[in-house]
Simulated assay, not measured.
Amino acid sequence: MSRIYKSPSRYIQGPGAITELGAHAAPFGSSALGIARTAAIERMGAAIKRGFEREGAMLALEPFGGECTDAEIKRLRSLARERGCDVIIGIGGGKVIDTAKAVAHTLGAPVIVCPTAASSDAPVSALSVIYREDGTFDRYLYLPASPDVVLMDTEIAAAAPVRLTVAGMGDALATYIEARACAASGAAVCGGGTMTRAALALARSCFDTLMEDGVKAKAALDAGCLTPAVENIIEANTLLSGIGFESCGLAAAHAVNNALARRPEAARSMHGEKVAFGVLVQLVLENAPTKELDEVLGLMRAVGLPTTLAALGIEDASRELIDAVARDACAPTDTMGNLPFAVTPAGVRDAIIAADAIGGSR
């Protein structure tokens, strides 16, 4: 099986980068459909349109419907066709970006993504997470290519609610831990093939950056500052984590997240928060050294990531509920099987219970 490495064609990060959007979009087409939440359009729309006008290109901004569902993708695809748009742009968080990528895929059009927070690694991946109409997880949509351009304005990301960047740290925390499991099992990476040494090195760099700069970045963000540590964490949450997961693979942490995401009890928690708890579950399944478990827990607590089911919103974690989550996480279509050892729903159930106890007591 061939080694495969995926990445966006271009990644741009820095303060004020959103003003360059028109210049980066113009080479791909003369008319773009921009998808964003209404608040983002009101806050940034005029400035972004001025950039397109300077390039002699057109931009139509359309409010996002709220969920990355099949119905929303179909609606926006039809709108893009009606308006003759030849470029799709997603401006916002993970669900906006995933929707833009899916719309572009169905049209065969180039896609540019502009994250407004460093809340997940969705921006750089050739993947969209599709949800049901009630907001619960449905499936992964694997795409043939990563975005053409990822433009991350760090002034905008740093001004977002701090919880979003912290959730991004939770998502990024899983990158290397899942990558090394996939390396040990020889699992295929997202979209097929096996991992490269380059991807595994980036996954490791993601983990090291979180440990080195995570607490410093959280303090700076709480104080309303954009520091080198914040820049590093934004890159780790977005670029390093995105390339790392996609070109190395996923394992137990994301399988647990997916199962939790299907539970309405956990609806108030963010993707990265559920993934972070999934990291604890995976470390329990692996019987990770106490030193490593303490290191991971120390970071999670220091930046405010949830370490228990109750912190995710599951106040009454009955045995029946945990059994259901464990069975769901072990579905053949999910990524639990990428661990380098056999796993059963009963074993995952016990690991969830143990992770919850460890997260609440240490």
Rank of each mutant, 00 (worst) to 15 (best):
I88C: 08
T333L: 06
A172M: 05
E82D: 14
T136H: 04
A122K: 12
P306V: 06
M300R: 03
A357V: 01
P123C: 13
P8Y: 11
L79T: 12
G14M: 01
R43E: 13
G193R: 02
L210A: 02
E246P: 11
I12C: 11
R83S: 05
A104V: 09
G135S: 11
S247Y: 05
S205G: 10
G359S: 04
P161V: 09
S128D: 10
A255C: 10
T175R: 04
E20Y: 01
T307I: 03
A326Q: 02
V325C: 04
H24T: 05
A355N: 05
E235C: 12
N232C: 09
R180H: 01
L305A: 10
C114E: 00
I97Y: 10
G191D: 07
R327Y: 05
A145Q: 14
V284M: 08
V111P: 08
A23I: 08
L21A: 01
A229Q: 12
M300V: 06
A261E: 13
A25L: 05
L107C: 08
M152P: 02
C330I: 04
Q13G: 06
G242R: 05
E292F: 08
T227Y: 12
G170C: 04
K49P: 02
S185I: 06
T196C: 13
E67C: 01
S30C: 06
T116G: 13
G66C: 08
S146Q: 13
A157N: 11
A302P: 09
D86R: 06
A342S: 15
T136P: 07
F64P: 06
G224V: 10
A253S: 13
F52G: 04
N287S: 14
A267Q: 12
I41T: 03
A32Q: 01
S31R: 13
E55L: 01
I243E: 07
D294N: 13
S2K: 14
K74H: 15
E20C: 08
K291C: 05
G108E: 05
D294L: 14
M300G: 05
S205Q: 15
G14V: 00
A26H: 08
L33M: 10
A288M: 03
K216G: 04
A324C: 09
N232S: 15
I358W: 05
L210G: 03
A57N: 07
R75P: 12
R268S: 14
S146T: 15
I48S: 04
P340H: 10
I352W: 11
G29E: 01
V279C: 02
R3N: 10
G347R: 12
M300W: 03
C248L: 02
R81Q: 15
E295W: 08
D334P: 00
N232L: 09
L164I: 12
S2P: 15
A181Q: 13
L200D: 00
A199L: 04
